[in-house]
């Protein structure tokens, strides 16, 4: 599960971002000093690994749901 997770976490070049015409004009685009630092700051947190307790929680919620779905399917 972790492997799939880290794969997903790989920063993909965001198509959305490059399609955003307003950002450059507003001074937050790729050539803007403020934009660059804003993203560096945000990115420094974004690049951290997700704490286990959050991953475990998601895993638990998913397991419970899957089990409930299977039970429901069985009783059909």
């Amino acid at each position: 599960m972790r492997d799939g997770f880290s794969e997903m976490m790989m920063e993909k070049p965001s198509r959305q971002r490059s399609l955003r015409p307003g950002m450059g004009e507003e001074g937050l685009g790729t050539n803007s000093d403020i934009g660059v630092r804003l993203r560096a700051l945000y990115g420094s947190v974004q690049d951290e690994s997700i704490p286990d307790r959050l991953l475990d929680l998601l895993e638990q919620l998913d397991t419970i749901e899957l089990q409930q779905a299977k039970n429901a399917a069985r009783s059909e």
């Binding site: 965001s14 955003r20 937050l28 804003l38 700051l41 945000y42």
Partner: peptide, 10 residues
């Protein structure tokens, strides 16, 4: 400024 400039929202 964070939502627009860093989170990548329109």
């Amino acid at each position: 400024v964070i939502l627009i400039g860093a989170s990548g929202f329109s």
